[in-house]
Design a binder for these strands. Structure first.
Lengths: 333, 333
DNA sequence: CTGAAAGCGCTTACAG
DNA sequence: CTGAAAGCGCTTACAG
């Protein structure tokens, strides 16, 4: 029961173990009758090839490593669903590595990943520095392990493929939407910590504002509710503003709550938009207008690109940009 | 570079490969000088044992499988953080298996897990039927793979250890809280689909209500916002109620939104509570009162229990119950 | 189309 | 404390 080995199958099917192996991995090389007989025995015995023996003999693991920061972010979790679904289709297992906050550990973890002999790596860390990129390049070149950046990008090079949306354009469009509504004093609420994707959103915002000769103001806060709430309160004491674009839905929702406490009405007095289209957006009152980022697809497509790489198939484009949308709901007019 | 094998190390250190192996795994069995020489060579060569060869020879993988339903649920994601942190401490890798919705596939996945030769399994599926439990028992007994149920339980048996909170008690306490506020018509909003944990929350609710001679009413809806919103709207046409306990924070927030649309004020007209203390609760307006479930800890502790099992250490108690709390915020008075 | 055999890189009794 | 050797369960040229 589950302890059946390839020898058991071979014995019972009256063939050699080589034939059993072929029946599984290269069925076309086995005569149909033999193959069927083998398959039947495999099922009878509930035989499953031992992954270690297979990995050792073939030097392939059919396992991919997925490297993520904090799992509890809504975007990461949903990307994992996309990754897992495609991984299943192509029969890859997922080794999950969650980064802790210590800077030093990332390199350590990547070494572990190499020792684990994975066939490919999906890198979901939000931010990627020159140093990290170089290290990934080393892994790619010296260990010949394909890597795909999922919802991350590195502009100076495209030697490592990436999958994401055009965040600059999304930032531009959502800003433009508010401008066209007639808003003039539009702030972007971004994060104190620098993330590449937020940086792109900011760039898009700046471009749209400048195109319309409007003054740009970027406010940086924290993703933590207690901190940003404090921030927003101060803010209402001193500022005049009629549009807010937050880099995350949850920040937008926090903002709406504080606006409400300050007797500012959304969207009459001020329009508010978020980014991502998470459940937060739909649970917000009023429902939040936001950029719709196809998070699941970003995960799924990046896994698909990785399978191509692992199969030595060529990929057309090293930088895959998926379409995004804008969902107009109740926080804009 | 990374391609060094145990033979290379043995050659360069002028010992046999058996000694290298011991120097790594049972250092106390090797003479200090020899050990140090070996260790030095290992570092020079950047040697990392091949995980497959090691797994094949030792029949141990230092890998645990984590079986989860839909990753994007807030609770699951946060549990993963707890699991990963403890796994890192004990040097276990995590193989992640996400269930899709097809009933049939779970057994298939468990077979894969067996083939992967993991040292232990963390089972995070919300619901566990007699059949599933029996299957897990088979794995545990025939394959000798330790299993821990994380935030899931099976009352008929405690042969498979579990870690969770006392959901019945939490349901009881939160209900009691509303009763003590003077609420009389308290509904529980649960899910259409049966989950064991929700069932326990319901039991606690029923016990508290009955103790006070109050009429019990359980309403079943969906976790999907569009569906439950519809539900709640109909509901306000016909019902009189002054307290709502939702089995999930997000459902409570949906409810608050609909109450608001029906000109019902929270908490003046009606108290609302949720379960879990997710970010939804803190982003809700008014801020949601809820049961605080130590999700991270549930993950961390269950991983810890699993390491003990894998190490053949005894565990004191097969059913670990962690403490929960109740966070009183603005949706109750 | 099929089989015998070497080999993947380790661990672990067994001797000494 | 150390080494020789068997063995873990597969894959894959190589013959036939």
């Amino acid at each position: 029961m589950g302890k059946a080995t390839i020898y058991d199958v071979a014995g019972k099917a009256r063939v050699s173990l080589a034939t059993v192996s072929r029946a599984i991995n290269n069925p076309e090389k086995v005569k149909p009758e033999t193959r069927e007989r083998v398959i039947r025995v495999i099922e009878e015995l509930g035989y499953k090839p031992n992954a270690f023996a297979k990995g050792l003999a073939s030097r392939k693991s059919t396992t991919v490593a997925v490297l993520v920061p904090d799992m509890s972010r809504a975007s990461i979790a949903e990307m994992m669903n996309g990754i897992a679904d495609i991984a299943r289709v192509y029969k890859y297992s997922i080794l999950l590595y969650i980064l802790d906050n210590e800077e030093s550990s990332e390199e350590e973890i990547l070494k572990e990943i190499i020792a684990a002999q994975v066939d490919g790596i999906l890198y979901l860390n939000d931010e990627i520095t020159r140093k990290q990129y170089d290290f990934l390049m080393t892994i790619k070149n010296e260990h010949q392990i394909p890597i795909v950046l999922t919802n991350t990008m590195f502009h100076e090079s495209d030697e490592i493929p990436s999958v994401s949306i055009d965040y600059e354009k999304a930032g531009y469009e959502i800003t433009k939407k508010l401008v066209e509504e007639g808003r003039k004093n539009i702030y972007m609420v971004s994060t104190v910590r620098k993330y590449m994707v937020n940086d792109l959103k900011e760039k898009g915002y700046l471009r749209a504002m400048e195109e319309h000769g409007l003054e740009t103001k970027i406010m940086r806060t924290s993703g933590r509710i207690s901190v940003n709430t404090e921030h927003f309160h101060e803010y209402f004491q001193s500022q005049k503003v009629d549009g807010i674009i937050a880099v995350r839905d949850s920040i937008a929702v926090s903002f709406i709550n504080v606006a409400f406490q300050n007797d500012v009405t959304v969207p009459d007095d001020i329009s508010v938009c978020g980014f991502q289209n998470t459940k937060y957006a739909r649970l917000s009152r009023p429902n939040l207008t936001c950029v719709d980022v196809p998070i699941y697809d970003i995960g799924a497509v990046s896994m698909r690109v990785l399978t191509k790489l692992m199969n030595q198939e060529g990929i057309e484009n090293p930088k895959v940009i998926l379409d995004h949308g804008i969902v107009s709901r109740e926080t804009t007019r």
